[in-house]
Structures are given as structure tokens and as C-alpha cells.
Design a protein around this nucleic acid. Structure first.
Lengths: 185, 185
DNA sequence: GTCTATAATAGGATAGAC
DNA sequence: GTCTATCCTATTATAGAC
């Protein structure tokens, strides 16, 4: 792995663990085992490095979710697969967590990957819901985009509840609740 | 308003706007218009002041939600009232947002008010759901605690989606989706 | 109670040697 | 490309005067 790559991977970890404000260049350099000079040689500064790291994280998240949602099975089964995917619940979402940081939200380069990820996810989920409605699997009296947003919110909100409780259980409750509601359609 | 109160109110604002890591004692003092000495006279330090501020915010949040959930009307109407309550969506939740900060999660004095708020909210929502099931308003095939967690997660997740998008719309989509699902019970 | 020093450490970056 | 040295500001307090 190149020095540049180590910087990116280390930044991805730290952003996930400590958020953007909580991640200092010094901490990145120390964990990556490189001096200051290297970091500023490859990146213009912390925002540049963080944006690069976030783009990579967003890519991987989309790849994972894309697989689950494109899989075989009914619409319900695919949404279920997405909701039941294995997650390190107490670590939270490496993309969604960024929305809490005002500096991320304020900087287009940082918010970009986050915004695009959720826009993409909403679109994919809505497409699956629409397929389910077309197949008569779900009643067609709700906007697919609304149900898609609800499913995405369950995951993001589940993380928040779990971290508040110090336990993954509230996340799983929320998912079970959402699946129970979806089955009733 | 006393100096102590101004410090608490200012800290509540800053915690909401910038989170715990992003809120410095100096910023609190400047916005409150008091010197360093005053802050350290009334509070042992930033964690103490922040914990006091969070307890007050938690109280107000519970008071507001409690009113909506205890109101008249069917279980569905009360949950609807909670979900449709007016919110400054792009500001996020002043309590739920704290879960993103590792220092808050790690400090029992800081996580306490957050944990208690969601524990209380989950209990209240579950009670309303249970009433709805008892009244035949909802089918009784789902655990009230699961549906309660789902409702709470919709709100918290809705904030995250909205801030990612830079628009309140995804929050409202998620709420509409959740209400559509609840109506089908 | 409140204020103004003062201080040790961290944050974020630049300069220049190698 | 990578490193160390240096710089300025912010952070989070403590000390002591008023």
C-alpha cells in the first residue's frame, strides 16, 4: 500500500471513529506512520484528504448496498436483506454520521459524497419498492420515494438510538418494526 | 437571567449548532458575554457545563413530546401528531445529534440525558402503540417496542437524510412513508 | 462573583533540508 | 517524496487581582 493510500485508509478510520472535527492531521499522520510533509505533499490539507477518504467510503457503501438491493427475490426480500445486513451498529454509519458535523455540511466537497450516497440509495430503494408495487406485492397507495426514505431513515435513526442506549438492540427493534410494517402492505 | 443561566442557554445553542467537540469554552464565554472566571466559578469545566445544558434540553424535549403523545385522539393520531410536529429539520435533533460524538458517548454524565430521553420516548411511543392494538386500531402481530423504535428512528434518520441533502424534504418523505405504513395496520 | 493574566497542550499548516 | 523544524492560533484550563 502506498503512503498516499495509507493516509486515505487511516483517515477513513478516524473519520468514522471521531468525525471530521474530531480528526486532526496529527492523529492521521501518527496512525498512518508518516510525517507531516508526506501528508501535505499528497493533499492540500485536511479537507482535501477527508474529501478523498469520504469518496472512497461512499463508493464502498454503494457497492455493498447495491449488491443487496439488486439481488434475487421479491422486493420485500431485497429490502429485508438490506435492513438485516450485518453492521457494526455501535460504530454508526461512516457516511450518515458525517451529517452531524457542521463543517462537513457547509463544505460542498465534503458533503458531496454524503449527499450523493443518500440520493443514490433513495433512488435504488424507491425502484425496488416500485417493482414490488407493480408486482402487486405492496399496495400502490404510497409514493415509492416516501417508503424508500422511511427505510433509509430507519437505518440511520437506528444507529442513533443504539449509540444513545449503548446497545445495538434499539437498532434491531427499529428494523423489526419496519419489516413488520412492510409485511402488512 | 443570571450569568449561570446565560452560560447554560448559550451552551445549549452551541451544542446544537456545533456539537460537543466543536464547542469550545471560549466560544461559550464570548457568546454569553462573560469572562473565563465566571464559567469556571459556576462549573468545574466544559463537561460539567455541557452535561447541565444537555439535561435541560432533554427535559424540554420530553415535555414537548409528552404533550403530543398524551393528547386526545386515537393512537394513530397521536403518533401522527408527534411525527408532524414542527421541527427546524436542518438543525437536526439537539439530543439525538449528540450520539455522533464519541466523547459524549464515552462520558456517562453526557450520554445520560441522551440515553434517558430515548428510553423515555421509546416507552411512551410503545404505550401508545399498545393502546392502539388493544383498541383494535392496529393489528396486534408486532411488538409495540419494535414499532416504537421504528417511529423514533424515522425522526432521527429523517434528520440525517435532510442534512445530507441540504433540504428538509427527505425528512418529510420519511415521515409520510412511515405514516402510510402505519395506516395499513 | 467576575475579570484579566498566564500557561501547557493540540490544531493546522509552511519551510526547507535530505 | 519524505522528514524535521518552525509558526501561529485555538483549546482548556489555573492563578490571582478586583
Amino acid at each position: 500500500m502506498t503512503t498516499q493510500d495509507r493516509l486515505i485508509e487511516t483517515t477513513r478510520e478516524l473519520l468514522w471513529e471521531r468525525g471530521y472535527v474530531g480528526t486532526s492531521p496529527k492523529a492521521i499522520q501518527q496512525r498512518a506512520g508518516v510525517g507531516q510533509g508526506s501528508m501535505y505533499h499528497h493533499f492540500t490539507g485536511k479537507p482535501d484528504l477527508a474529501a478523498t477518504a469520504l469518496r472512497r467510503t461512499a463508493e464502498q457503501l454503494r457497492a455493498g448496498a447495491g449488491q443487496l438491493l439488486a439481488g434475487p427475490g421479491t422486493a420485500y426480500r431485497r429490502i429485508e436483506a438490506y435492513l438485516l445486513a450485518e453492521r457494526d451498529v455501535l460504530r454508526g454509519c461512516p457516511i450518515g454520521g458525517m451529517t452531524q458535523d457542521p463543517e462537513v455540511v457547509a463544505d460542498p466537497a465534503l458533503r458531496g459524497p454524503v449527499q450523493e450516497t443518500f440520493a443514490w440509495l433513495g433512488g435504488r430503494l424507491a425502484a425496488v419498492v416500485a417493482e414490488g408495487q407493480a408486482a402487486g406485492e405492496f399496495t400502490a397507495d404510497a409514493d415509492p420515494a416516501d417508503l424508500a426514505a422511511a427505510v433509509a431513515a430507519i437505518v440511520q435513526g437506528g444507529y442513533a438510538l443504539a449509540r444513545a442506549a449503548g446497545s445495538p438492540e434499539p437498532f434491531h427493534q427499529a428494523v423489526r418494526g419496519a419489516l413488520a410494517l412492510l409485511r402488512a402492505r
